[in-house]
Design a protein around this nucleic acid. Structure first.
Length: 949
RNA sequence: GGGCGUUUAGCUCAGUUGGAAGAGUGCUUGGUUUGCAACCAAGAUGUCGUGGGUUCAAAUCCCACAACGUCCA
């Protein structure tokens, strides 16, 4: 069974009838009984271009957005909705997405699963969102945006608990009232399309609200969950009704603005200042004035209408698109040549995309994101680089931070940001520097990789283009520019290449998506009450008595040595691994049985103690934890929090925890930062952290429900990752650091003693890893460092203060002496071979030097050089050494009578058997080795004989 | 999280089937020149990223690690 028709009184009262779309086959409601398209099809043009459907909004840009937003929010406030402040665009509370992609994302997964109360109910919000999937189409399609505001009214109904606020009938009525009364849109312009929605395991009926060919809003009635035995079938899956019934609506603020402005594209409606500013900088009017006959307004108008019905999606090839556009424009009687079309649309689409990208970028960086080459930070870098490329393509001589500065003052004036204004501009400047560096290196890469490519090549090999893009960040169009500058004047990109590259990336991504699931520790955990965690009651408790609820055999291959069973108790002091803190060790005993606890892990709400044997269910056990270890782990864990807070205060508001680990030996904290840290930075953070140890008397541990926690402290709480569940433990170290954390922490920071930041390392671009030692580990570390210094200074017999000076002296002396030895060895060879010594003789103008020397092949090579590189003295040299099984090396002076007469390889083959070896080389230089050094004399003698010396 | 690339002189980079570590630029000295630029001559500068392995022989082939870069999710 599918979903029933959406048959509402509001439709009938407002004079609507239900028709089926002849193109999409979807059912829709319209006031025009003869209408046979639903409004959002390839035949429904935008009717509002040049003829706004929403009247009374003559302003543009930020002012237009502000008043539209206010009209929407106050409409719903007046009908009992609570206005909720927007969430950040960085979805810190989610571990499955980086960016907020819809208003409902604010409430996923915990509110939508029913576990957590919504902040208000019903509520209204205007949520800034970022979606980068369509980034290719931005600017080209006239309507795509990477960043937009989704206005919404949300309701979370629990009919099973008697909490039913409203459902379809009221929802559509509200929407219709908003459209017709607040925005004065005529009923006949609006169609309501029935189009069920499903995604992420949920589904429900949905209504799309189409006005003038543009989808302005979607109303989703989410009350179904995927279930194999469900009785409702949608798009191939079966669903059943769920207790929570959610209304998820989305009204595109920017689309409302567009419909009110009636501008050729959405960008002119929302970013008019930036568009005209950029047009002026680019000199756009001088482009169009080349063709006085060209009717630019009608061209752009027709294009916009076409944009509405043409499917311009990411990956569509520019060349294909142009051909289609020209054909369709021709059909409509718009006269334009391909050259004119390109000359106008190319710069325009770039001008349009820039403010959109700047808006997304400002929002992301404003929320404290740090650009990086991985994860969420990469999204910011990608946008920054796209913007820089657009800028360069347009030939604009203006920096990214200047562009951003303009954008922020025009479009984001007064908006609160976490990142400071200066911080944001500095980050963008650094990004631009990196981009410049990449381009500069790109020039070298091109000249290197194009070595074998003929100068008149038109189409470059696909592999080369893929490689340049993926490994060097040089997009195909950048390659063309660079190649043309470097002398390959004819290169171009073949049609369809961009689409193929996108497809290839998608394929690789798909392969990579096959992730590995963690193996379970035990087969099955029986239905038992949750383990009571004593460590939250008293973090200092070291011993306890408890009863055994279950003893389960351990499975899996990543277990500590000797662990065979997992013991489940009714309560425990043992902290299970979590939040980056390792699990506790210790002992569990009855009167007769004693087991060492090798590790403690948590599965669901149960804590498992890994031991090397078994207990009986019902046994009373006495547990004691390895307190020294626990104390050290707590030292490191609390220290990590303190250091994190110190880093934020020293370095700026963008410092966010990207990961952490606390072991007995050390703590590790990964923080997001846009620069490498030097020792001065580390010292400053370290000093502040130690000050905190002295200043803050007590840490404060509270448990709050999520709704209140979010409200009170915001999303910086979730530095350690998005926690599960409604109840959140919060560790507050005065105002220095406040985080949701389930780990064990000292009540008094002073108990840690001292904190040292040992070093920092780059984990990835934009993330620095701080290595921290605290408490006993800090002492041990200092002692260990002392011992190293002592050991080293003992070797030299000097005080450790002199170590740097002395090692430097030793190193440079060693280098000098090594060079002297080489020279002396060469000198010895010269002496032994000059002036008719027994080691050399002469045969018909060729000096013959055959001798035994000491040293390896490298040294012998040096000696040979002395002997044979002088062309004025043609020489055949045979050197032998007894090192490493015996080595032989033969060389003759190149391009002389010596090389004509003697073949080094041939001679080597003759004599090498004496040392039971082989070898090879070139006719002028051969080297070989063997396994019988005693035969070296024979080998050299054989050589003398062979040449007749 | 995954893929790819790079690592050789201060800098930019060559280095072919494994067989004598190179070029350009910069640097030093000398010459030329009022001076600069330019030119001429001579010279110095190397842990071939690190650690293993294969081999008579490794910058080169294999493995691991690291740093840097880059694309995608």
């Amino acid at each position: 069974m599918g979903l029933p028709p959406i048959d509402l009184a509001v439709f009938k009262n407002e004079g609507y009838v239900r028709n089926q779309c002849r193109i999409t086959a979807l059912w829709f409601w319209t006031t025009d009984p003869t209408r046979d398209t639903c409004g959002d099809t390839a035949e429904d043009e935008y009717t509002f271009i040049g003829a706004p459907l929403i009247e009374g909004y003559s302003m543009r840009g930020k002012a237009l957005k502000d008043s539209m937003r206010e009209a929407f929010l106050s409409f719903f406030e007046n009908i009992e909705h609570t206005r909720v402040e927007p969430y950040p665009v960085l979805a810190r509370w989610r571990d499955d997405i980086h960016l907020t992609i819809a208003s409902i994302a604010d409430f996923q997964p915990h509110v939508t699963s029913g576990e957590v109360e919504p902040p208000a109910n019903p509520l209204t919000i205007s949520q800034p969102c970022i979606r980068l999937t369509d980034v290719d189409a931005v600017g080209r399609s006239g309507r795509h945006l990477t960043t937009f505001e989704m206005m919404a009214h949300h309701v979370f109904n629990r009919p099973d608990e008697g909490k039913m606020y409203y459902w379809m009938e009221e929802c559509v009525q509200y929407c219709h009232d908003l459209m017709t009364k607040t925005f004065n849109i005529s009923s006949k312009e609006i169609t309501y399309v029935e189009n069920p929605w499903c995604g992420g395991g949920n589904a429900g009926a949905a209504v799309e609200v189409i006005v003038g060919g543009l989808e302005l809003a979607t109303l989703v009635f989410m009350n179904l969950e995927e279930h194999p035995k469900g009785d409702i079938e949608l798009k191939g899956d079966t669903y059943r009704e769920m207790p929570l019934q959610i209304i998820d609506t989305g009204y595109g603020l920017e689309r409302f603005c567009w419909a009110a402005a009636g501008t050729p594209t959405i960008y002119e409606a929302i970013y008019p200042e930036t568009v005209s500013w950029l047009k002026e900088l680019v000199g756009f009017s001088s482009i169009t004035s080349q063709w006085p006959d060209l009717d630019l307004d009608s061209l752009l108008g027709e294009m916009s209408r076409l944009n509405g019905i043409m499917n311009i999606e990411p990956g569509v090839d520019a060349e294909e698109l142009r051909t289609t556009f020209l054909r369709r424009l021709d059909e409509r009687g718009v006269v334009v040549t391909p050259e004119q079309f390109t000359a106008v649309t190319e710069p325009l689409s770039k001008i349009y995309a820039i403010p959109d990208h700047l808006h997304a970028l400002s929002n992301m960086l404003g929320d404290g994101l740090v650009p990086s080459n991985a994860k969420a930070g990469y999204l910011a870098r990608m946008l920054a680089r796209r913007t820089l490329r657009l800028r360069d393509d347009l030939g604009l001589e203006i920096s990214l931070s200047e562009l951003a500065q303009h954008h922020i003052s025009v479009n984001l004036d007064g908006q609160a940001m976490k990142q400071t204004h200066d911080g944001l501009l500095r980050i963008l400047q650094l990004e631009e520097d990196r981009y410049g560096e990449m381009i500069r290196k790109g020039g070298h890469v091109i000249t290197t990789q194009f070595k074998d490519i003929p100068r008149d090549t038109e189409y470059l090999p696909d592999e080369l283009l893929f490689n340049l893009n993926d490994s060097h960040g040089l997009a195909p169009d950048m390659v063309v520019t660079l190649a043309k500058n470097a002398g390959w004047k004819k290169v171009q990109i073949r049609t369809g290449f961009a689409a193929e590259m996108a497809e290839r990336h998608a394929r690789i991504a798909k392969q990579a998506a096959q992730s590995v699931e963690a193996k379970p520790f035990v087969e099955h955990i029986p239905a038992l009450p949750a383990t009571h965690a004593l460590y939250y009651d008293d973090v200092q408790q070291k011993e306890f008595d408890a009863s055994v609820l279950a003893c389960l055999p351990l499975i899996g291959d990543d277990l500590p040595d000797g662990a065979t069973h997992a013991i489940l108790l009714d309560k425990t002091c043992f902290y299970p691994e979590g939040g980056g803190q390792e699990g506790d060790y210790g002992r569990l005993s009855t009167d007769s049985i004693h087991h060492v606890v090798f590790d403690t892990q948590k599965v669901g709400s149960h804590i498992l103690h890994f031991v090397g044997g078994s207990f009986e269910t019902g046994d009373l056990v006495h547990g004691s934890i390895d307190w020294k270890r626990r104390k050290q782990l707590m030292d490191h864990h609390t220290a990590v929090h303190i250091v994190g807070g110190a880093a934020r205060r020293i370095l700026g508001p963008h410092i966010y925890q990207a990961g952490a680990n606390k072991s007995v030996d050390s703590g590790r904290l990964d923080i997001t930062h846009f620069n490498r840290l030097n020792r001065d930075d580390l010292d400053a953070i370290e000093s502040l952290a130690n000050e905190v140890l002295g200043q803050v008397q007590r840490t404060e541990k509270t448990e709050l429900n999520r709704k209140d926690a979010d409200k009170k402290y915001g999303f910086d709480l979730y530095q350690g990752g998005a926690p599960k569940g409604n109840s959140i433990r919060i560790l507050r170290i005065s105002d220095h650091d406040i985080q949701a954390c389930g780990g064990t922490h000292h009540d008094e920071p002073g108990q840690i003693g001292s904190i040292r930041i040992v070093r920092s390392a780059a984990v990835q671009d934009g993330v620095e890893r701080l290595h921290i030692v605290a408490g006993q580990a800090a002492l041990d570390y200092a002692r260990n460092q002392d011992a190293l210094l002592r050991k080293a200074s003992d070797i030299f017999g000097i005080p450790s203060n002199d170590l740097p000076k002395t090692t430097e002296r030793f190193y440079s002396e060693w280098k000098e002496q090594r060079k002297t030895i080489e020279q002396l060895e060469a000198e010895i060879v010269r002496l032994r071979t000059s002036g008719g010594g027994s080691d050399s003789s002469e045969i018909e103008g060729v000096r013959i030097a055959i001798m035994e020397v000491t040293g390896d092949l490298k040294k012998m090579t040096k000696m040979l050089k002395e002997l044979t590189l002088d062309a004025s003295q043609p020489t055949l040299a045979v050197l032998g050494s007894k090192e490493g099984g015996g080595k032989l090396m033969i060389a003759v002076t190149e391009n002389t009578v010596a090389s004509e007469r003697y073949d080094a390889v041939q001679l080597l083959r003759e004599i090498a058997p004496h040392i039971k070896g082989g070898g090879g080389g070139r006719p002028t230089l051969a080297q070989g080795g063997g396994s019988h050094p005693e035969g070296l004399d024979d080998a050299l003698e054989a050589a003398r004989k062979s040449v007749g010396a």
